[in-house]
Amino acid sequence: MAKASDLLEQAAARRDLARRARRLAESLSPEDRERLRAHAEELEGEATELEGQAAYMADKVPPASIVSGATHQVQQQQQQQQHTEPKVADPADPKRRP
């Protein structure tokens, strides 16, 4: 699944292509101009859709700082548990052999 930032980059690229298409359209015949303008509109529509998807994802996914903070907290808890758990002697430990 793409990240919101990836979707926004794709949207920006589509808008850039739409701008270029409109500029190029000015130098074409009327028939070609209309086709290229229609394509530019399609690109704009795709960009709008991608931005909407990115906004939806941004609302549903917590910011990376929260996720990484939660991960760090879980790691700390695991380390604390490792230090507080009683150690059981391992019968296969060579130090215990007479």
Rank of each mutant, 00 (worst) to 15 (best):
P62D: 12
E42C: 10
S27Y: 09
E41R: 14
R35G: 09
A58I: 03
R23E: 13
Q53L: 00
L50I: 04
A25G: 06
Y56P: 04
A47R: 01
E34D: 10
E44I: 00
E31M: 01
A38W: 14
S27A: 15
D59L: 06
A55M: 00
A38Y: 14
T48C: 07
E34C: 00
E42T: 13
D59F: 01
V61F: 02
Q53N: 06
Y56H: 01
A58V: 01
A40F: 02
E42I: 08
S29W: 02
E46D: 13
H39Q: 15
M57N: 02
E31S: 09
E44N: 05
T48M: 09
A54K: 04
H39D: 15
L50K: 10
G45W: 02
E44H: 06
R22A: 05
D59M: 06
A58E: 07
R37F: 11
V61T: 10
S29T: 10
G52L: 03
A55G: 04
E46Y: 07
E31V: 02
R23D: 13
S29G: 13
A54H: 02
L28D: 12
A54S: 01
E44D: 12
D59S: 11
L50Y: 04
P30Y: 01
R35I: 04
L28G: 08
L24T: 15
E41S: 14
D32A: 08
S27F: 10
R37C: 14
L24H: 15
D32W: 01
E51Q: 10
E41N: 14
R35Y: 10
E42H: 13
R23P: 00
Y56C: 00
D32Y: 02
L36N: 11
K60M: 10
S29V: 03
H39G: 14
P62Y: 08
T48Y: 08
L43F: 07
E31D: 09
T48F: 06
A58Q: 09
E31W: 01
A38V: 13
R37W: 11
